[in-house]
Amino acid sequence: MTAAKKLREMLSQNKIIVAPGAYDAWSAKLISKSGFQAVYMTGYGVSASVLGKPDIGLITLTEMVAAAKNIVDAAGDTPVIADADNGYGGNLNVMRTVQEYERAGVAAIQLEDQVTPKRCGHMEGKEIISKEEMVAKIKAAVSARKDPDLCIIARTDARAVNGFEDALERAKIYEEAGADIIFIEAPQSVDEMKKVAQCIKSPLLANMVEKGKTPMLKNNELENIGYKIAIYPVSPLYAATKAVIDILSSMKENDTSLSSLDKIVDFPTFNSMIDLQELRELEKSFL
């Protein structure tokens, strides 16, 4: 079964799909090993990991596809939902983006209606393209996929630019254009989230960003409202960042890492987590 088919089957079930954010292959592997139903490849996190830069449209299609391939490989059987920003250009660029991401093995591709350069969904200063331009991009994306199970996620950032009603209107139009999953970025109240669920028939994606613009609800609460996917794009990235800062501060202060052994995994444990023994045994099997 393909990853896209597996995601489609999960979407047909009643339980919400929870997808923590992976910013590289190792974080994707950890998410998969932890038993989550899906991995979300975060453009925000990949930009930070690959470039050490913010999510403001600096990362390229080539860099994102390379990250997607590594994340898909590391995630194993866990489907990957991949951020593809605004498709990296016009309609033909969107088609190439879909084709490249599909070859990388992702189960779903997220496209947004921002202008270039784009911004992270919870940042200020966003601008959006017209409804007609985004509809054309969605149609181009649908046309470009080879596997009909591959999900096209249409995201609108209109809530922060033109207000909630425009965002809702866009979501309906994008649904009609052929998007499989609808993502209204950054609704600002539970009431808005409930209204989205009342008005949109397609599966809905909720973006849970700590201290972002959207209320942080528990997964069962999102499920009860009517959401089918909950992504946590920055939680692993922020946790890893805090852990690295803490260990570096401790090393600098104490002149050693030995005072922080309780905060890190050890050498044998990490080697086991990264499947070293299995790979060595596979290597020996050919001798």
Rank of each mutant, 00 (worst) to 15 (best):
I264N: 13
A38W: 04
L287C: 13
P268C: 05
T62R: 10
A179W: 10
Y232V: 02
G87E: 00
R170V: 08
R170K: 13
A84E: 01
N207C: 04
D55N: 11
D85K: 00
N86I: 08
N91S: 15
K195L: 14
K242I: 14
L217P: 03
I181M: 01
N14W: 03
E112I: 00
G21V: 06
A140E: 10
S130A: 08
I81D: 03
I274S: 06
I225C: 01
D83Q: 00
A158I: 02
F164C: 07
A4C: 08
F270E: 10
M216E: 15
K228L: 01
V46Q: 14
K29A: 14
S272V: 13
L150G: 00
N70K: 13
F267Y: 13
T116A: 09
P148C: 01
A74M: 05
D157Y: 11
L205D: 05
S34K: 13
N254F: 11
N14H: 15
A140C: 08
T42C: 11
W26K: 09
M216H: 14
I153A: 03
L279G: 09
L222F: 11
S259R: 13
M1S: 02
L204W: 07
M41F: 01
N207T: 12
I152C: 11
A75H: 07
N254D: 13
G90F: 13
A19K: 07
Q110E: 15
I17C: 01
A141E: 06
E223Y: 09
I152S: 12
K118W: 11
V46D: 12
G125V: 04
K218T: 11
T62H: 10
M123Y: 12
S34T: 12
D55C: 05
K131D: 15
S34V: 05
K172G: 11
I181V: 12
I31G: 09
V161P: 09
E165V: 05
I16M: 00
E100I: 03
K242S: 14
P233Y: 06
G45Q: 05
I231T: 01
P187V: 03
A67Y: 01
A25W: 05
S27I: 04
Y40W: 14
I274R: 13
Y238C: 10
K228N: 04
